[in-house]
Design a protein around this nucleic acid. Structure first.
Lengths: 203, 203
DNA sequence: TATATAAGTTAGTTATCAATAACTAACAAA
DNA sequence: TTTGTTAGTTATTGATAACTAACTTATATA
């Protein structure tokens, strides 16, 4: 009957269960009690591994942040043309979100927006990090001649940085009834047309 | 000491106070008790005017929906070129959101995303309504020759429909430290460049 | 194999929430 | 001036939340 686990195992279990709950019932319903019941321990056991609820949210955020960083790094480092790498980065990014549906729920949650300042700061830093990566790829694309050299890559990066969460929000609001990756990539292509050097080179 | 008000007055007062609380403390903290304390009545008085909490949220949503509809109508109906009316519509839309900062808080709230199905359905219908108006303006613009006639106006409308909440989310996440209207309009211009008939006609 | 320690338990506390029951005071119209 | 309606009250309930104190047991290793 003794199903004791190491702290590291239990912490991972708690984080994954919290992600599941955040998606299924909403971030607000991620309670220590709900997690405990799902993994088969008592409610205070959760607080043994995370001293406060806020600490648990930070651990969840870091889990997401590390996963995203791996995805971004893999896409950025490559020798394909910059615009292709940018497409691939956003495609992988959207695929990860589709596979981890708790992310929109957490990103849009009040836990983030009004309650937990540290959590918000962490996500802001991740958004800015993505902005830097996109900006860098756009600058490379400008040097490669794939987009006009006069393009304001900072504004263009911020446009993509708005487009991605925007389509996520619509996806979340409409009950995930359209294909997030397909829709996101379609909107990306349309946005990139505006940066194409000539009418014909939109491809 | 008797500060009795008519039901209509009290209902309006409750809705406006709820909007204020949704912004200041987050939609989750919009409790009957908090509202009651702010307007100087007892907590059950709130439930006299709205039978359930959900009914209050629906009334809040309808208040927002009606305000937006007025703004959209004013911008759509006019005789300026369609693309100018589209810019004006989105500018007025963003100005209203800047003046009513509870809207992003509610739009991203769990109240909307996981809890209150009727509320979510209402906001989805409002988003679709905006999509129709934008799509209509883009079709007009295509007929006027302001954008290429082959443009897929439905996809373009959905791009704008993602861009707007996306910039709202970034604004909200970053603690409203940039100018929502200026940033939104800058991103809109960049997005419209992609639809411009020729390189030179980007203006 | 003893034992320290880390992983867990039971049994609480305090706070906040939506909602209801039972009642009262203001008011408008017949 | 009576009478029905409506806006309000106080008091309470039942859930659910985060968190804590005090105690117990599994397990790795000296």
């Amino acid at each position: 009957m003794s199903m004791r686990k190491t702290a590291a195992e239990r912490q991972a279990e708690i984080i994954l269960t919290a992600l599941r709950l955040a998606h299924e019932r909403g971030p607000e319903r991620v309670s220590a009690d709900a997690i405990a019941k799902l993994i088969g321990v008592s409610q205070p056991a959760v607080f043994r591994h995370f001293p406060t609820k806020q600490a648990l949210w930070m651990a969840i955020a870091e889990w997401i942040g590390e996963a995203l960083e791996r995805i971004w790094q893999r896409a950025v480092s490559g020798d394909a043309p910059a615009l292709l790498r940018l497409r691939e980065l956003l495609r992988q990014h959207l695929m990860f979100i589709e596979a981890t549906p708790a992310i929109p729920a957490i990103l849009f949650s009040r836990e983030l927006h009004s309650q937990n300042g540290a959590l918000r700061a962490f996500f802001v830093s991740r958004v800015q990090r993505l902005g830097q990566l996109l900006g860098g790829l756009l600058q490379e694309a400008a040097r490669e001649g794939a987009i006009p050299p006069r393009t304001d890559t900072a504004v263009a990066a911020r446009m993509l940085l708005s487009l991605v969460p925007g389509v996520m929000l619509r996806w979340s609001l409409q009950g995930r009834e359209f294909d997030l990756v397909a829709e996101g990539m379609a909107l990306l292509e349309l946005a990139l047309q505006g940066l194409a050097p000539t009418e014909a080179a939109g491809r």
